[in-house]
């Protein structure tokens, strides 16, 4: 494993994923080359069905590519055996989903500590870590609540705390604001922004412009392929006044 700054955290080459065959062949990902640098936030946008969720699953080892290579932290993961792949997912990748995917019968803190426990941490260390993370996402006072007693935005913040539990190399988020209202979206945006400032590497697939706009780099995806790429950082400061009707 390499930890140098210039090894991309995530790299794909010639990535393809297809389902079915013959006339019902679906090319969900049709030849994607991607490099994500350490500390970078990349957003992938595109219409429903463009392949962005499939791409995210393949990046995180939830699914295997039909063709091509996936490298995480300088290590090729698309050929790992099931056990090694599961371990890699647990230790190196944090997932955030649109539907939160929390365990209903576990409290917020139990949901967060679960992944630390599965990774072999002692119950005491796991609880300490989970408590710390809940504080970080602003939910210290909700630690003992079941998901059902939390708002959508709070549930997503618990899910983000869980994703961070094992200090992953990369956080992969699939429509993280898809089920949230405007105020809760702003909370999640703030949280992603603070992760970014803390040096986390993030890949977000979304069609929410607001979360896409927090990225350093934005990739547009259509029909399984990247069609446009934009660096959003270092943009337009000073022109906001004109947007509000203030000239000059």
């Amino acid at each position: 494993m390499s930890d140098t700054a210039d090894t991309p955290v995530l790299r794909t080459r010639g990535l393809r994923k297809q389902y079915g065959k013959g006339e019902v062949l679906v090319r969900a990902v049709a030849g994607v080359d991607l490099d994500v640098a350490s500390g970078e936030t990349v957003a992938v946008m595109g219409p429903s069905g463009c392949g962005k969720s499939t791409l995210l699953h393949v990046l995180g080892g939830l699914d295997r590519p039909s063709e091509g290579e996936v490298w995480l932290d300088g290590r090729r993961i698309d050929r790992l055996g099931e056990k090694a792949l599961a371990r890699m997912r647990r230790e190196a990748v944090g997932f955030v989903f649109q539907g939160f995917h929390l365990m209903d019968e576990l409290t917020a803190v139990e949901n967060v500590e679960l992944s630390a426990l599965l990774a072999g941490n002692s119950p005491r260390a796991a609880r300490r870590r989970a408590t710390e993370l809940l504080e970080r996402v602003g939910l210290a006072d909700r630690a003992g609540f079941l998901p059902a007693a939390l708002s959508g935005g709070q549930r997503q913040r618990v899910a983000i705390a869980r994703a961070l539990c094992n200090e992953p190399r990369v956080v992969l988020a699939d429509e993280p604001t898809g089920n949230l209202d405007s105020a809760a979206t702003l909370d999640v945006l703030r949280l992603f922004e603070s992760l970014h400032e803390a040096g986390h590497t993030l890949v977000i697939v979304t069609h929410d412009d607001r979360i896409a706009a927090t990225a350093d780099r934005l990739i547009s995806m259509r029909d399984g392929a990247f069609v446009d790429e934009t660096r959003l950082a270092g943009g337009t400061s000073g022109k906001l006044g004109a947007l509000a009707g203030l000239e000059g």
């Binding site: 412009d209 934009t230 950082a233 943009g235 337009t236 400061s237 022109k239 906001l240 947007l243």
Partner: peptide, 9 residues
């Protein structure tokens, strides 16, 4: 527009 959205946000 996304650059401006980023700045405004």
């Amino acid at each position: 527009l996304l650059r401006r959205l980023r700045d405004a946000q």
